[in-house]
Amino acid sequence: MKKIILLVVLITSSSGFAQPNCFVYPEESGERKACELSYKAIEFQQGSKESQMLFDEAIAMGPKFAWAYYQKSVPYFKRGFLYEGLQLLNEAVALEPITYLSYRAYWYWQYRNYALCIQDLEQYYALPKAYMQHTPGGEKDMRILLGLAYAKIGKYAKGIEILKACINDHESEDYVGLADYHSLGVLYVLNKQYEKAIEVLEKQLTVLEDMADTYYYLGLAHKGLSNLKEANIQFNKSLEIFDKQNRFRNTNAGFIVYPSDVKHELGTN
């Protein structure tokens, strides 16, 4: 229950992370005006002409008010205008790295530039006042993405180290992300540490039983240990879950599993 509540809090708060308080800026200052105009802008639909023009006005009034650049950048990223989005978000990052580095890293991840994603997150976590950051959807600690990004460039051991540290922190707070053990298990499989993979993937099943991907990776781990009978049991379970409408889908998984992957393992493809 505690986990669900935390997840709901994360999801509902994530869209407006770091929402500024306009009253902290002196009255009549450029930042105060920019802040007020930006709040006016987000009353309009995201990406609409009205909102974009208000952000432009805000930026002209208070060019040091980072939130306006960030808010203005979002629809560009979501709609495939990566370059335009980055020109705006870069301004926000330059003004307030602690607030926006992690968000830029998220978009680097989304657009599959793992080197730049790692660069931003390493820079972020090296900041003395770095705090816990999540994906915009709230489902993953950004350190999980950092570990997965290392795995994407083939640095599995480094990824494992980061994921373990992240999970350890959360375990001590009695909260682990819904797919965190899964992510660690995937990295163990990729690093051919099959016994460790089975250990954490089975732990994952105590958190969630309806994620098809977990059974697939469990199958791969058993296969890695030449336990083909058990591997096939897991692959079949995975296929069963794929058929369920309400199965859990692992957002920002990094390593996505398709039914065709499982069928391929079962040799029925």
């Binding site: 002409k49 974009q52 432009d56 002209a60 650049y69 560009y76 709609r79 301004e91």
Partner: peptide, 15 residues
């Protein structure tokens, strides 16, 4: 080169 600081023409929606 700095779109944020020039007056831009927008479509009704970005994209």
């Amino acid at each position: 080169s700095t779109p944020s600081r020039t007056i831009q023409e927008y479509q009704d929606q970005i994209g």
